[in-house]
């Protein structure tokens, strides 16, 4: 009995928390504690949300277009980060030659904040899809490489010795032992990379774009519409959560049985 009651409370509490924040936020704005020109109330944001569903004004595009733009940029950059970062990291973890060649370059590029690439990216690719995909790639690829590398390095040495005594070749050990063993770390990296990519995306759009969620936020500032800023922020958050959940689902499917 006690247990099911606890569980019920745990289920309700998060909703209560959100509701409380919304109510306090609404009151702060309604009572004029923070002037309406600086912060929009939740109700205003929701209203704008419905307006933006099918009105392109005043920023030039409906909400779906902004989301689609951001998603397209993020997914392109993110998948390129995975396609390049994971194999590179895994190979760096196992093959001495790859580590020797790639590690110094990687270590040199790693400390550069992805946002610092923005000016060059604009020079090279303009403010379109490619430029932003590049910035997202630059920020997503680092955690992919690091986690894959560490994942391979953390392979239980007994597993490797076991495979070796059966006569497995280096390549077989890499394929059959190191990669599956690194998977949980790799997926951890996917989540980190996702967060990094999403952050870089908004930063990139804040500076140079004509659609996208980051652009929506910038337009809110230019048009002095705090509700639009908040709406943009919320959409960035929500979309990020949805992608995170999808990555998590895929991960659970793929690493069944692996001890976490």
């Amino acid at each position: 009995m006690e247990n099911s009651k606890d569980r019920l409370i745990l289920k309700i509490l998060p909703y209560l928390g959100i509701l409380a924040v919304l109510v306090i936020w609404e009151l702060i704005v309604d009572l004029g504690i923070v002037p309406n020109t600086l912060l929009a109330s939740p109700i205003q944001v929701v209203k704008l949300f419905f307006i933006k569903l099918n009105t392109a004004d005043p920023d030039g595009a409906v909400l779906a277009v902004h989301i689609a733009t951001s998603l397209k940029e993020a997914l392109l950059g993110y998948s390129l980060a995975l396609i390049i970062g994971i194999p590179l990291g895994l190979a760096m973890g196992w093959f001495v030659i790859v580590e020797g060649l790639a590690r110094p370059i990687f270590e040199m590029i790693r400390p550069i904040p992805p946002v610092a690439w923005i000016p060059l990216a604009i020079f090279w690719f303009g403010i379109g899809l490619t430029g932003k995909a590049f910035i997202i790639w630059a920020s997503g690829v680092v955690p992919c490489v690091i986690n894959s590398f560490v994942g391979v390095r953390m392979t239980n040495p007994t597993f490797i010795r076991m495979a070796r005594t059966y006569g497995a070749s280096d390549w077989e050990i890499f394929k059959q032992i190191c990669i599956p063993s690194a998977l949980p770390m790799v997926f951890g990296g996917l989540q980190v990379a996702l967060a990094a990519s999403w952050t870089a995306l908004v930063a990139a759009e804040l500076i140079a774009a004509d659609t996208g969620l980051g652009f929506l936020i910038t337009m809110g500032r230019r048009l002095l519409m705090p509700d639009m800023i908040v709406l943009g922020m919320l959409m960035v958050g929500l979309t990020g959560v949805v992608i995170g959940v999808i990555v998590d689902k895929v991960e659970k499917r793929l690493v069944a049985g692996v001890r976490r």
């Binding site: 007994t158 076991m162 059966y166 063993s181 049985g257």
Partner: peptide, 21 residues
């Protein structure tokens, strides 16, 4: 030679691959 001969090793520590049944 492990590649030529058939050698098996049972280790003191657990050596089951956790991702395999």
């Amino acid at each position: 030679d492990p590649k030529k001969h058939n050698i098996s090793f049972v280790f003191q520590e657990p050596s089951c691959l956790p991702w395999r049944t």
